[in-house]
Amino acid sequence: MEADALHDLTAAYALNALDAEDAGRYEAHLARCQRCQSELAELSESASALAYAADAPRPSPELRSRILEQARSERPNVVPLRPRWLRPVIAAAAVAACAAIGLGLWASSLSGKLDRTEADLARQQRVAQILAQPGSHKIAFSRGTLVVGADGKGALLLNQLAEPGSGRTYEAWVADGGAPQPAGLFSGGTTVAVPLDQPVRAGATVLVTEEKAGGTEAPSRAPFLIVRNTAQS
């Protein structure tokens, strides 16, 4: 089909009104046609506005839980996600170390960087002290683990975290019934261990944002990670 004829399919594509064959051809064309991309963005917005013209009774309350349950069952342990998370590349040595210590994230961070600085080592020691406490809690989430010691000291262990943008840093926060308090700056890595500078009591929430280098006093943008300490104190 000629390019002009393909351009002409944009409105029908926005309305999902192409048969599978035409839709496939149009998508192949769309990938390399900027004009169609911007035209499709506009026409799709109009098309989806039509959704609001339909009457909107409530679906059964079970639908919500069905969707969330299904999503949970599909959540993979290691997913390549852009742009924040790196694609998983797990060295055999790291896997072995994980198995040995039983907490994969921390273990592979030990075998990670060669240019480890003293500051890094100090951070890892702080994390190790929390991990070593009897009765420390681990709260697993999709990309890592929040560890909280019996004394309320906490650490985030993050897996496959891409470096922050240039001139930027990650900043951890702890919110415990009030405004989030700064709890440490860090960068990315295959595995990252972040001792938190604020206590993480039961019910407190740990957040992570990307901020300008040097960090800020209050989060300036939406957190990309939110974990609540659900452990019972």
Partner: peptide, 9 residues
Amino acid sequence: MRGMSETPR
């Protein structure tokens, strides 16, 4: 125990 499955305030 899951940290993400609830909806804290």
